[in-house]
């Protein structure tokens, strides 16, 4: 069991509670549900777990129109209809028109795979309920061919949610749960330094100062998150901005340079400019 432990990777910092939840899910082969603010690395987690445990990853991204059935298989009735009109021989075997979905792919894999069901809350409210049996028993029935598909190895299922819809109790009861809370300064420092190991310490400190200050502004429509911070630092490095330019009190650059990476809508930029302006006046 020890060699199957997830402890974070050199490009992903996992907190203790996240590791515990993840390892519980891996050991007991139960699905794990990950929630958190957008941009805190929910999807990234699955990719990193796959990398760290050396297992193949199957990603299933959910949209508002996705049906649970599509994860299992699709019966392409239109193709069959067309073939029948053209007199194709394939039409006699219904199996030719069954298209495998992501869950089937994961079930059929030789070694134990990792299955990511991304943003499950985007789908219809009944979606999670439709998958209960499949995720519990890790098997499903194909009605068209009367075939029972069973997982060769129970996949490690990672499900992410942005909290747009409440998930049904019956579904939650079968999962482990983890809420990724926004990283504190210390963790954030570690996260940034695994992404940019050669970053100068003083630039990092100033950037984090500016970042947490922007996050603290009340009334922002969308607070910048980890992924935005990483993008911003990438830009700062690319543009070779000196750390001094980020320091508050520098009247010429009241707004952090390249703020477009942090604030993503114009009302927020506007609000922020106003606050900085007021702040500067009161300091004079």
């Amino acid at each position: 069991m020890t060699e199957r432990k997830f402890t974070g990777t050199d490009s992903y910092i996992a907190t203790d509670d996240l590791k515990m939840a993840m390892n519980a899910a891996v050991t007991l082969e139960r699905p794990i549900l990950i929630k958190g603010e957008p941009g805190t690395g929910k999807t990234q987690l699955a990719i990193e777990v796959a990398k760290s445990l050396g297992k193949p990853l199957f990603e299933w991204h959910i949209k508002s129109t996705t049906k649970a059935q599509q994860g299992l298989y699709d019966y392409d009735a239109v193709a069959r209809l067309r073939d029948s009109q053209l007199g194709d021989d394939r039409v006699h075997d219904i199996g030719n028109y069954i298209v495998r979905g992501k869950i089937w792919d994961a079930f059929a894999n030789e070694e134990q795979p990792i299955l990511l069901i991304d943003e499950i809350d985007k789908a219809d409210i009944e979606f999670p309920n439709d998958l209960l049996q499949e995720l519990d028993r890790m098997e499903f029935f194909v009605y068209e061919t009367k075939e029972l598909v069973k997982a060769r190895n129970r996949p490690i299922v990672i499900i992410t949610s942005n909290n747009e819809k409440e998930l049904p109790d019956a579904f939650l009861r079968r999962c482990f749960f983890h809420y990724i809370k926004f990283p504190d300064r210390e963790t954030m420092q570690q996260i940034v330094s695994v992404h940019y190991p050669k970053l100068k310490q003083n630039l990092l400190a100033e950037a984090l100062n500016a970042f947490y200050k922007v996050r603290d502004v009340r009334g922002l429509k969308k607070k910048p998150s980890t992924s935005e911070l990483l993008d911003w630092i990438k830009l700062l490095v690319a543009e070779d901005i000196p750390p001094e330019a980020l320091r508050p009190g520098d009247a010429r650059k009241a707004i952090p340079p390249l703020y477009g990476a942090l604030l993503k809508n114009e009302q927020d930029v506007h609000l922020f400019e106003q606050l900085v302006f007021l702040d500067r006046r009161s300091n004079q």
Binding site: D16, D17, M20, A21, A24, I32, L33, K35, L167, L172, R173, C175, F176, F177, H178, Y179, K181
Partner: peptide, 12 residues
């Protein structure tokens, strides 16, 4: 504590 929270509570 982490383990029991992950098992028993499904709503932050």
């Amino acid at each position: 504590y982490f383990l029991s929270r992950s098992c028993l509570v499904k709503d932050e």
